[in-house]
């Protein structure tokens, strides 16, 4: 039934089934005393035991382990991981540079956003989706429940990369945040003239755990240009005349490595998860292998 709700162009139904078994790992799974505040929304997965601690006046006596009191005559509180709903925010870069690659980075970006959105909604997490270029181009706030998958997919499908992007401008804006703590997944190529650090820092500061997904096409990672070319920037239309040579390509790789190192270093310093994704790989491969390996989903 739910398969029919999903647009087949974005994600394969068989893959959606696999997604249902996946879950975003958040570092926000805090130990808490608020166990039983909500019912478990997942059959078969009960409240996870965390620890014991001694009773202090004012504690909820319902949480006292009476079995332990019977044997030890001391009041112990049984503590559990509080399983709260998390708020997943998807930021998809829809600037023009994303339209490149085969398949395009934007398509793979949309598929990733759909996948993350789908598995989050499936686990009854709240999902907010933003598409940005120089500003927030479009957004779909506070989706909840599997029924909203269709809305999310439609929203994603309707997006088109047409204008120049500026992440720092687009995301450091009140329109780009919703005030709820949670996980923010930013999918972009991060090829922004003015950088990305400011935007990411801003989002992080709004109590978000951030996952950066960088999409770089094969042409960007391993260009095979030859001869004299006038490279034209798809967004800014600026150009650069370059006479290609093995030396120059070597230099490019060097520059690219520095760029990737920098973003990785930035992420590591701030406890941000980072993953470089090759859009040429299949979406299943990306989700199942890359993200799992990176400990982003399980």
């Amino acid at each position: 039934m739910k398969n029919e709700m999903v647009s087949p162009s974005l994600l394969d139904p068989a893959f959606l089934q696999k997604l249902e078994r996946m879950k975003i790992i958040t570092k926000r799974m805090m130990k808490g005393t608020q166990s039983g505040k909500r019912r478990s929304r997942q059959l078969g997965s009960s409240i996870e035991f965390a620890d014991y601690r001694t009773y202090t006046p004012g504690d909820d006596i319902r949480q006292v382990d009476w079995n332990a009191f019977a044997r030890l005559e001391k009041l112990f509180l049984k503590t559990f991981y509080d399983e709260q709903e998390i708020h997943v925010t998807l930021y998809l870069d829809s600037s023009k540079s994303m339209a490149y690659g085969n398949p395009s980075k934007f398509l793979v970006g949309k598929q990733l956003a759909a996948a993350f959105g789908y598995l989050s909604l499936h686990h009854f997490d709240r999902v907010t989706a933003y598409a940005f270029d120089q500003k927030i181009a479009n957004h779909l706030p506070f989706l909840y429940g599997k029924a909203k998958v269709q809305a999310l997919f439609r929203f994603l499908e309707e997006l088109n990369p047409t204008v120049e992007g500026n992440i720092n401008h687009a995301l450091t804006n009140q329109k780009a945040i919703h005030g709820k703590a949670g996980v923010s997944i930013i999918i972009s190529d991060f090829l922004f003239e003015e950088g990305y650090e400011k935007a990411i820092s801003f989002i992080q500061s709004t109590n978000q755990e951030i996952i950066l997904v960088q999409l770089l096409s094969k042409d960007e990672l391993n260009p095979e240009f030859q001869g004299d070319l006038k490279l034209i920037d798809s967004e800014s239309k600026q150009d650069k005349e370059i006479t290609f040579s093995p030396y120059l390509l070597k230099e490019y790789h060097h520059t690219l490595d520095l760029f990737l190192e920098k973003i990785q270093h930035f992420a590591n310093q701030r406890g941000i998860s980072y993953l470089l994704v090759h859009p040429e790989s299949s979406i299943e491969e990306i989700m199942v292998q890359a993200f799992k390996k990176a400990n982003i989903i399980r």
Binding site: K96, S97, M98, A99, Y100, G101, K105, D189, L191, F192, E193, S217, D219, E220, F225, G227, D228, L229, K230, L231, I232, D233, S234, E235, Q238, D239, K240, E241, I242, T243, L248, E251, Y252, H254, T255, L256, F259
Partner: peptide, 20 residues
């Protein structure tokens, strides 16, 4: 020198490379 036009996603890295 006759440069052939080639549109790419971003010349950011190329420009950086040349600056380097």
């Amino acid at each position: 020198k006759k440069y052939e036009d080639q549109e790419i996603s971003s010349i950011l890295l190329w420009r950086r490379m040349i600056l380097d």
